[in-house]
Amino acid sequence: MKERIEQIVNSAKERINKIEDLQELQELKVRLLGKKSELSDLLKGLGTVAKEERPKIGSLVNEARQELEEKIGTAEKKLKEKVMNQKLEKEKIDITAPSTKITRGSKHPINRVIEEIQDIFVSMGYDVVDGPELETDEFCFERLNLPKGHPARDMQDSFYITDEYLLRTQTSSVQARTMLGNENKTPIRMICIGKTYRKEDDATHSHQFNQVEGLVVDYKEKNISLADLKGTLEVFMKKMLGENTELRFRPSYFPFTEPSYEVDVTCFKCGGKGCSLCKKTGWIELLGSGMVHPKVLEMNGYDPERYSGFAFGTGIDRLAMFKYGITDMRYLYTNDVRFLKQFDRKDNNF
């Protein structure tokens, strides 16, 4: 009997070894271990065996079953692996081949810079406020200490619609609106960013351009001073143009501030060495600023005896041109799709 079992096991092993296909292996498993298998038959025939021999043979048969089950299990695992490997091999691709593109849109460089400036000032506690582009002479000039006939109005040749209405020449108009609109005359810390218009069109001037305006007004005891203005603009410019940027304040004249300063920054092209962009001076004139003129405070409802503050403004177009190395201002307003599509990724910081 024992020989018979060994014979069955050996012949089964041989058959298992030869099998190459999972399906066949399943079928063989049924034939070898199923109810109708030879081993099952042996157990069924135990009745014909001597009583004392029965347990021994029974356990021999079970051992044989176990051995075969293991053998089949191993074979099955091997075959599955083989099948998987074949499948993987078949699915192998050229990972260097072109991807299926998803189109990205693009954000205009001017608006990129505007968003960046907003973030800088909001993080310093400034409110971002908005104002009309179609402005009145009152807010654009008169409430900023520029009465009719003032020679400084010449600096800004304006687009008038009527004697009273014009396209704002400067975002400074929002200074007057903000002060006048703040009924409780609480301290102000605001910026306004937007389009401005002046009657000039040449290689370096567009009749439509963008400005940011900042205004800080606080109680006199807070001593808002020129030093604070300098510090604020230093933070702003270094953040926009890089930590190595230096600022140079030059006394100047704006009717709405006194004292007034023009602010130069280290030339962004040559880093201050002197080049064609900065006319060999190493400086680029970028901002106008100053301490809010007492008359402006007064005209807009802030008692100059109780309040003081500073204001500043700068053009955004030139910042954008510098930041992205745009060589000709006209690109900004031509809207050539080949230009626009270049601004389609996250900005990196300086």
Binding site: S123, A227, D228, L229, V235
Partner: peptide, 14 residues
């Protein structure tokens, strides 16, 4: 004149 930042209460810009 050395630059500094205004000393004002911290507030969140809107």
């Amino acid at each position: 004149i050395k630059g500094k930042l205004p000393v004002t209460p911290i507030k969140i810009g809107s």
